[in-house]
Nucleic acid binder design. Sequence first.
DNA 1: GACAAACAGTACCGAATTGGTACAGATTGC
DNA 2: GCAATCTGTACCAATTCGGTACTGTTTGTC
Lengths: 155, 155
Amino acid sequence: MLKISKLTDYGLLAAVYLARHNGEVASAREIAEFYHLPVPMITKVLKTLHQSELIDSQRGSGGGYLFNGDAEAVTLGQLIEALEGPWDLVECETTDDQGHATCAIRVACPSRRFMFGINRAVKGAFEQVTLGDLTRGVMPVARVAQAAPALGANV
Amino acid sequence: MLKISKLTDYGLLAAVYLARHNGEVASAREIAEFYHLPVPMITKVLKTLHQSELIDSQRGSGGGYLFNGDAEAVTLGQLIEALEGPWDLVECETTDDQGHATCAIRVACPSRRFMFGINRAVKGAFEQVTLGDLTRGVMPVARVAQAAPALGANV
DNA sequence: GACAAACAGTACCGAATTGGTACAGATTGC
DNA sequence: GCAATCTGTACCAATTCGGTACTGTTTGTC
């Protein structure tokens, strides 16, 4: 199915919450209650975001998570990559541990070069949106529009 | 996971094959053998494409499927919609049988208006690519670049 | 008219993924 | 010492995915 998982969705919401409270410590429980979502789910994505060094954490009583950087320097692409793991629209471009392509339909590759372009266009669009944009709740139309040409060069 | 299913992938390949042999009848077996894919899989996607009236079929001996239209008039968006069914990057915008939103995190909606924009940008990109483009194996960079602004207006 | 080739429809199955829960630590403030 | 909170791991039910099987129905050919 062509959609982001709920976990990723929750992660984006959590990131937005922290970015809106920039520099303030917020517990997983606080964020979960704000969105009416199960606490274990939120803790899971917060841990993931922290492991990717996108947010900071403070352990112990009174601790929690916080975003303490420049929201304009974090892209939607980074967030999704952290939450979803490495991904590609089609298997063709994914590689295994040894860096070899995992694609099973090699013979078809000439028939589907176009998918590489689509893949990069979508990723590029995600790279043009910052956490700051998400926090403001709007999509920067102009910037997304400018995304594709730069990517096209790589096709 | 953020990727198109293999079935959809196969469907695109089959559509490309038929478009390249415009007007000629090709059996499911022929296409499956060309791509080295299981015949039942290919028949499944061909049936789907036919039900969506994107390709024609001829039953009986010597029959098969054929594409007999203008490849430039069929978009990647149409193909994916036919193969994948109605889809949205996030649940927020999907609706059930009665047309009601199925989103469970309504309280968060103000926090995620941006996703609507992303959703439409991706769909819009798919709409700007035609089956003809796929057949030629390249992505039309310029046209995809122009996709986003038109969509932004709807956000 | 029999037969074979090919589409049409449906049902099924194992494996992977998803969404969610549970629990035993480790760390810190009071 | 205790409570609050993060950390890590394991587990489970439900769904989806990828693939197979089987029973029609249609049509061309001999």
